[in-house]
């Protein structure tokens, strides 16, 4: 009843598709962390101009569907700027911008959860704020929200399958092509699902390893 052997000719294609998924996840997680980091620092600052801007940014990216953001960036960028954005670029950009909003909220929560005494101790020794936030507050904040951050990258990995709708040759796109060619939907999609599952498990494993590492100070 199952004929997984029909997939054999397409396995090299699968490996490049998986690589696209991995690359995509890594780059957008990286962008998301950088953006989230900056947004979180703005959110806890007292800058009267930047704080509302950051709040607005976060509410827009959390308040609209990722798929809409993706399509908007992919299809509207050429119209507005004349620049023909590639599907991969559009994907990475929209996912990075989107996850920045979520990561910044997680980080902000983490920063606020750091004991006020840590701030006071650093201040009372004359350490400038920008220094101790980097050296004392953020390391503890990241530790506090590490599970949330790992969840965010897992979500990014899974949501990366959305880019197949704009034609990026990722893992889901591969399955879609195979089922169109071989009329074997189950085999194609179950393999894609298994590949995603394996990657998520790998991330989970990395996550718990990192968590253990950072708990040395507990």
């Amino acid at each position: 009843m199952f004929k997984f052997s029909v997939l054999t000719p397409y396995l090299p294609l699968l490996s490049s598709a998986v690589w696209v998924t991995i690359k995509f996840t890594i780059i957008s997680t990286f962008l998301g962390f950088i953006g989230g980091f900056i947004l979180a620092l703005i959110s806890i600052s007292k800058n009267k101009l930047l704080v509302p801007l950051a709040k607005f940014y976060i509410s827009v990216f959390r308040g609209t569907p990722l798929l809409v953001q993706l399509m908007l960036i992919y299809f509207a960028t050429p119209q507005l700027t004349g620049y023909t954005i590639s599907a991969l670029e559009a994907g990475v950009l929209s996912f990075g911008l989107n996850s920045a909003a979520y990561i910044s909220e997680a980080l902000r929560g983490g920063i606020l959860s750091v004991d006020k005494g840590q701030w006071e101790a650093a201040m009372s020794l004359g350490v400038p704020k920008h220094r101790f936030i980097m050296d004392i507050i953020l390391p503890q904040a990241i530790k506090n929200v590490l599970p949330a951050l790992i969840n965010e990258s897992i979500a990014l990995l899974k949501d990366s399958s959305l880019v197949s709708v704009i034609g990026v040759a990722d893992t889901l796109r591969w399955a879609d092509l195979i089922q169109a060619k071989t009329f074997r939907a189950f085999e194609a999609f179950i393999v894609a699902a298994a590949v995603y599952y394996a990657m998520v498990m790998f991330l989970t494993f990395i996550g718990s390893y990192v968590e253990k590492k950072v708990r040395v100070s507990d």
Binding site: G117, A121, I136, P139, S217
Partner: peptide, 11 residues
């Protein structure tokens, strides 16, 4: 300052 709750940097 030395604080009641020590406030050593935990990390």
């Amino acid at each position: 300052m030395v604080f009641q709750h020590f406030n050593l940097f935990k990390n």
